[in-house]
Write a protein that binds this DNA or RNA. Structure first.
Lengths: 334, 334
DNA sequence: GGCTTTTATGCAAACGTTTACGTAAATAAA
DNA sequence: TTTATTTACGTAAACGTTTGCATAAAAGCC
C-alpha cells in the first residue's frame, strides 16, 4: 500500500525525519548502522519521496523539457530517444512539448516552465518567426540548449549539424551527376539552420559555375498538399533536372509529384533530401539522403545541458557541430 | 525578472495570499474588482505559480506519464502526438518514458511515479513477460489506461485495435491473392494483443482450409539483424508464398531478406504487415499494410484517462476497440 | 580527569501554495 | 430594529521534504 511518507517512516524507525532524510541521501552525518536500517525499511515499505515536497524545498525538479515542432518526425523522435537515454542516466524526467511550428505556443510553453517545473530546456525552435527578445528573457532565467533548429540572433549553447557543408556537398553531388538546373526546396529560412543550408547550395552552384535561378528556389509550406502542388508546378514550369530538399518532409511530395507527372527519378530528375527515414533505402527509387545524426544530437544536447546543470560548463555560447552523412542512392543515379 | 511568488504579489496588492490565490483561481468568494486587479498585476509581473508548491498542497500534479517501448516507432510517435494534443487541451504536462521492451524498467518507472509525480499513466506494455502482480499493485494506486499493447490478465481500462479481425482479414487477403504457404511473423505473443493477432491468422487459415504449418510461424527477436537472419532462413527452408508480420519492425527485414535472396515481392512471396510507415506507398514494392489509427488511439486513451481523473468515468474495465484499416498495395499484388 | 573535537541525532524553519475556518461589514429577512 | 444571511477578505495550518543550527554522547588529547 503506497504513499508512506518520511514522517511515518521516521516514526516506524523511532528516528527523526531529519535523520531519515539524511540517511536516504547517504549523508556522512549518519552512522552506517542507522543508514542500513533506514534503507531496509524504506525498501520494504516501498517508500518513494514525494517529488513536489522535495522540489519545493530543494528548488530542483529533476526534470527537463524538450520542446520540438513535431514528435512524428524521424529526426525529432530519434533526438528524443537520445535525450531520454541521457536523462535516464542522470535520473531525470523528460517532459515533451510540441509546438507544431507555432512560435507563440513555443514561447508560452517556455514561460510556463519558468516557475520551477523544470531545471532546463532542450529546444529545436519552430519555423515561424520569433521575437528574439522573448527567448533572451527566458535564457536569463533557465538553462537552455538549442539543437538543430537554432536562432542565429541568440547567444546560447547550441548543437547543430554542418548545415552549410551538407548542402554544399549534396549540391555538388547533383552537379557531378550531371544536373544543371537544380531546384532548392527551401525551409527554415528564418533560422540560421535554414540559411546555412541555403548558403551551402548557393555556394556549390557558384563554385561549379552552375547558373542560379530564382525560379528554381521555392519555399516550403507547412502543409503536405501545398508542397505537392508547388513542387508539381515547379516541375512543370521549370523542368529542373535535380532537386535538393532542405527538410525531410519535402521528400515524399517530390516522389508523388514525379509519379503523377510521369517523371522518372533519377532519369528525368534527380533527388537528394535531408532525411532520417529508415525506409530511404527501400523507396522506389531508393532515396539519396543527407542524414543527420539525430540520436547523437539528442545525446550531445542533453549531455551539455546536464553539464550546465552540474555547473561543469564554462563555454557559455559554444556551438557543437556534428557531421551529417551523405548517402548516395538510386534517386541520384547510384 | 521572473519568479515572483504569491507572497510578493499579495504584498504589492496589499492583500493576503489567500485572497490573491483565490482571485487567480477565479473563486466566487472574491469581488470582481479585486480579481481584476490581481489578474492585471499577475500578468504584468509574469507571475507563474510554483508547481511544486501547488502540487504539494493540492495533491494534483497536472502531469501524466506515457510509458512506451520506443519513441522511434511510427505507431508510438503518432500515439504520443494524439496524447499530447489531449493533454494540451486539459492544460496537462506529458512525461515520456521508454522501456526498450524491458519490463523491469517498466515497473521501476511506474513505481517511481507512484509518489505523486503524475496524476495518471498511459502505457503500452513491454513485450517481455511481466509479473502481473506488479501491475495490479500499481493500478490500485494510480489511474492507468493501457493502449495497444495490453495485458490480458489485468483488469483495467484499455484502448486497442481489432487485432483479431485485422490479421483475419489480412490473412484472408493473402489467401485470396493465391497464397497457400503463409508465414506468420509472430510478436507480442505474451500479450493479448499478440495472441489475438495470431488467433486471427489461425482462424483465417482454418476457415479457408489452408493447412497450418508450425514451421511457418516464427517469433520475432528484439534485434533487426536477428530478424533478418531468421526471415532469410524461413524463406530458404520453407519457401512461403505469403508473409504476414504482426508488427511494423518486421516488415523491413522481409524486404532485405527477399532482396538478398533475389525473391520478388509480390511474385515469389507476398507481404502484408502491420505498419504506420508514411512511406509504405513509396516502397519498392509498395507495402500492403494493416494500419492502426495510432493518433486516434493516443487521443482516445488520453481522453479516457482525463475522464477518470475528472471522475466522469463509470466503466472501470472497459476496453475501447478502434478499427485498423487494411490497405492493399503492390506487395500483395495490387 | 578536564578539555576540545568529532560523531550522530533532533528541533524547527523554510520552500510556495491551497483551503478550512473565522470574521467584519453589508445586505436581506423578520 | 433585530436577527439571519451573504459577501469579501484574512489567519493560519497543512502538504512532505531538506537543512541550518543546537545538542548530547563519545572519542581524542594533554
Amino acid at each position: 500500500m503506497g504513499n508512506i511518507n518520511l514522517k511515518e517512516l521516521a516514526l516506524a524507525l523511532n528516528l527523526s525525519t531529519a535523520t531519515v532524510s539524511r540517511a536516504l541521501r547517504d549523508s556522512h552525518e549518519i552512522s552506517t548502522e542507522t543508514k542500513k536500517k533506514v534503507l531496509e525499511l524504506a525498501k520494504k515499505l516501498n517508500y518513494e519521496p514525494n517529488p513536489s515536497a522535495s522540489n519545493l524545498r530543494s528548488q530542483k525538479s529533476k526534470t527537463i523539457a524538450v520542446i520540438i515542432p513535431e514528435v512524428t518526425n524521424n529526426f525529432f523522435s530519434q533526438a528524443i530517444n537520445g535525450i531520454e537515454e541521457i536523462a535516464r542516466q542522470h535520473d531525470y524526467h523528460v517532459l515533451i512539448y510540441q509546438t507544431h511550428e507555432n512560435s507563440e505556443l513555443e514561447i508560452a510553453f517556455m514561460r510556463r516552465l519558468l516557475s520551477g517545473r523544470v531545471d532546463g530546456i532542450l529546444i529545436s525552435v519552430a519555423s515561424e518567426t520569433n521575437d528574439d527578445q522573448d527567448f533572451k528573457d527566458i535564457l536569463n532565467e533557465l538553462p537552455v540548449v538549442f539543437f538543430d533548429r537554432v536562432n542565429e540572433n541568440i547567444d546560447a549553447v547550441k548543437v547543430t549539424t554542418d548545415d552549410y557543408e551538407s548542402t554544399y556537398k549534396a549540391t555538388t553531388h547533383l552537379i557531378e551527376c550531371g544536373c544543371r538546373k537544380i531546384a532548392y526546396l527551401m525551409a527554415l529560412n528564418n533560422l540560421s539552420t535554414g540559411k546555412k543550408r541555403f548558403a551551402g547550395y548557393l555556394a556549390a552552384m557558384k563554385d561549379n559555375n552552375v547558373t542560379e535561378n530564382e525560379a528554381l528556389i521555392i519555399p516550403d509550406s507547412n502543409n503536405d498538399d501545398d508542397n505537392y502542388t508547388h513542387i508539381k508546378k515547379l516541375l512543370l514550369d521549370e523542368k529542373p533536372d535535380g532537386i535538393i530538399t532542405s527538410i525531410e518532409n519535402l521528400a515524399l511530395p517530390c516522389y508523388y509529384a514525379c509519379r503523377d507527372l510521369k517523371l522518372n527519378i533519377p532519369r528525368d530528375v534527380k533527388l537528394i533530401s535531408f532525411s532520417n527515414l529508415k525506409t530511404a533505402p527501400l523507396l522506389n527509387p531508393s532515396l539519396s539522403t543527407i542524414t543527420q545524426p539525430a540520436f547523437e544530437m539528442g545525446k550531445e544536447a542533453a549531455s551539455i545541458l546536464f553539464k550546465i546543470l552540474n555547473k561543469k560548463y564554462f563555454e557559455p555560447n559554444e556551438t557543437l557541430v556534428l557531421k551529417s552523412v551523405i548517402i548516395k542512392r538510386e534517386s541520384t543515379g547510384f
